[in-house]
Design a protein around this nucleic acid. Sequence first.
DNA 1: CGTTAAGTTGAAGTGAATCAAGTACCGTGG
DNA 2: CCACGGTACTTGATTCACTTCAACTTAACG
Lengths: 236, 236
Amino acid sequence: MPHTYRVDRTEECKPYKASEFFRTLSAAALADFESLAIRQTYAPREVLFEEKRNPSRVFVLLEGQVKLSMNSMDGRRLILRIAGPGELPGLTSVLSGKEYEMTAEVLCPCKIASMHRQEFLGFLLRHPAAYASVARDLSQEYTRACEQLRTVGLAATAPVKLARLLLELCGGAQQTERGTQFRLTLTHGEIGECIGTSRETVTRTLSDFKSRHLLDFRGSTLMIHNHLALANCAEV
Amino acid sequence: MPHTYRVDRTEECKPYKASEFFRTLSAAALADFESLAIRQTYAPREVLFEEKRNPSRVFVLLEGQVKLSMNSMDGRRLILRIAGPGELPGLTSVLSGKEYEMTAEVLCPCKIASMHRQEFLGFLLRHPAAYASVARDLSQEYTRACEQLRTVGLAATAPVKLARLLLELCGGAQQTERGTQFRLTLTHGEIGECIGTSRETVTRTLSDFKSRHLLDFRGSTLMIHNHLALANCAEV
DNA sequence: CGTTAAGTTGAAGTGAATCAAGTACCGTGG
DNA sequence: CCACGGTACTTGATTCACTTCAACTTAACG
């Protein structure tokens, strides 16, 4: 899995401060981190790390999106989530030293800071206060994993799962007088891989929701008309 | 949710040291924790905390077993795991302050130390080194959650899921010349709730495995004859 | 403008849930 | 000692939601 080494030092460290992880770090710790990390640009379809491999580097996603997924050898896939700026995918494995439990693949062009695992562990020893940030991040990841377990493992039917996913995705989207509108960047196939159903079932369930006037979609733009009724479908 | 307040101070703090969480704490930190925590005995079926509730206390399981599960309003249930001595169920929610994502129910009589959330947060501020323990614990929980996501969300069929669970449960059980033998304390219904299938399917799949001589069971004792073939069923 | 990826729709097949009816296995008390 | 009630387990029949397969339409893009 060779990484591209297009090192990029033109950016300021503003992106770090925007991140939840680095917000509470001291200036000294931030500078220390910055001095150890290298910045690179990754192209779509590049793989940051693969499940079952031993963790070698910490990655900080500064710009772009990364798809985190699990893959079985018979071609099935479960998308855990699409990581955005400020996230540290794979942090757990870097800490524990155990093999990655997921694969991280670049979706759209990314700016990413990274450093060797050992250097990061050294950084944590020098700045124990950073463990608070680590704990916060892990806590968030765990909460998300539980949410997905709820969706995938507890929801009985495909409509319920899809409704749950849509409500999660539209969180924090802009409200209009007609409802909540947002861009659905995932394909039907990818949506299916998020909730453990087939591509076709996603299409059918989505158009069922449409015919019931819960939502509407043209292209990749999705509009949720009846938020309450959809929440009812999601059994929340 | 009233807790029983049968405070019990006869035990030494040995159980703490046996725990992964407290092993790396300084003596001072341990003493501080000990001075804040109260110890109680809980009876089976008592509930430590419930999903959707706000976290009020930290719990340290010293003795016994606690069932961690998610419940949907239509009666379905997903068992996350059976927590054992040394674990701190619900730690994530206590840290983040967000509502519990699971319910913790006592299985067999438990000795449990606990303290108020605010006191625990104060403890962490006084002993930042304890964040390392917190991070380690969260990391472990996350790994487990991912394992279950793999089983529940990625495994296609019930036999695969069941095989995966059995291999996980027999981890660290005693080996005989006939195979791996261990006690299966869960009922078929509970096994079903672990992997998201029905009670009947568990019975059928189990006897299918038996007829294929992969394993054998009398009462609650289960013997895995053909470890490799079962791993093959589990698609690992 | 042609090629590929994504979405749509119908029909057939299937794994597992559900329903139903029964058996085995406790501990308890008459 | 056995009847009793409760719980767990077992097994078969039926049903259903979803997958799979296939054919086709639409959109995206160099």
